[in-house]
């Protein structure tokens, strides 16, 4: 009688293992049946990722630095940030992390573009229908909180080890902020302004592209920024399933207790993060210059 209270009446060991095996087995069947199709579906993405990474690694390094400096300048319009970026990449090259950094850069860029392409429409959908919001929000909560190792298992079972599963893992982790902040940004647009657009007979598209998205841009940009940061923080975990880049030496450093190696590669990731963050933030700020008063 007391046993019942002190020991939770769990399923028996046999039932439980049958349950687990059943789930595993059905997922295996699913992956055997659809694994190849899924792989074929993601093939264009893989090709693009490989092409982009080769482009970055094969191009002469001065050219790459020049292009990065140019992009930084276009985004931030700040000499300080541009000079800092060039110095950081020179240091990375001198410390022999150039190739790994390029691989990570390619990965992060593709992941970010993918997240933006999926996340912004999702956010718009959530802002338009409360129904969509109530369905998508818990999914985002799960995506953000579930330990990444857990969803690595099915991804690897489906697609094996390599770049695409790594990219998916990064995207699952990095997608939520852009979706959330797009939704929030659109919902926060001043009601008076929306009412005015409505009163002048604006259609849904005219309201969305003429009013809501432009006014939500500061929030959307904060979302992009967060997405990039989260993608970067997944670099090490992604390298566990075969993604090349700065995560691989970090992983090696962990298992062999190489302090310097881990620190250097870790700092390279930090450098990338700071560059992406400053550039995207200053760009976002420039987009809303209308908020300043007294400007000609």
């Amino acid at each position: 009688m007391l046993d019942f209270l002190t020991e939770f009446p769990s399923l028996g060991r046999r039932d439980l293992s049958a349950l687990r095996q059943g789930i595993d087995e059905s997922f295996r069947t699913f992956s055997r049946a659809y694994g190849e199709q899924l792989e074929a579906f993601f093939n264009p993405l893989l090709k693009f990722l490989v092409w982009f990474q080769d482009l970055l690694t094969d191009a002469p390094w001065p050219l790459v630095i020049l292009v990065i400096a140019l992009l930084t300048w276009l985004g931030a319009r700040s000499w300080k940030i541009t000079t800092g970026t060039v110095l950081a990449f020179l240091a990375i090259g001198i410390l022999d992390m150039w190739e790994d950094t390029m691989a990570t850069l390619a990965m992060i860029s593709v992941a970010t573009v993918l997240c933006i392409a999926i996340g912004i429409p999702l956010g718009i959908l959530m802002a338009r229908w409360d129904r969509a919001q109530s369905v998508i929000t818990p999914i985002l909560d799960v995506m953000q909180t579930i330990p990444s190792f857990v969803y690595l298992i099915p991804v690897v079972m489906l697609l094996g080890i390599g770049k695409v599963p790594g990219l998916l893992a990064v995207c699952i982790y990095a997608l939520p902020p852009i979706v959330r902040l797009t939704n929030l940004g659109i919902r926060l647009v001043d009601r008076e302004v929306m009412e005015a657009a409505e009163a002048f007979g604006a259609s849904y598209r005219q309201k969305l592209f003429g009013v809501q998205i432009p006014l939500a841009l500061p929030n959307i940009f904060a979302g992009v920024n967060q997405t990039i940061m989260m993608a970067l923080s997944m670099v090490v975990i992604a390298s566990m399933i075969g993604v090349q880049g700065l995560g691989v030496p970090v992983l090696r450093a962990i298992s062999n207790q190489y302090l310097a190696l881990g620190l250097m590669n870790g700092l390279a990731i930090v450098a990338l993060a700071i560059i992406f963050d400053r550039v995207s933030q200053t760009y976002g700020k420039r987009l809303q210059s209308y908020r300043e008063t007294g400007r000609e």
Binding site: E192, V193, A196, A197, A199, L215
Partner: peptide, 30 residues
Amino acid sequence: RRFKMSMVFQKFGLLPHRTVQENVEYGLTI
């Protein structure tokens, strides 16, 4: 709403990201 009626609001309801010129053009663009 586009052709027969237009509206002026208490708190103006102007589009903050558009210039005066673009704001006045708004109804016409629509």
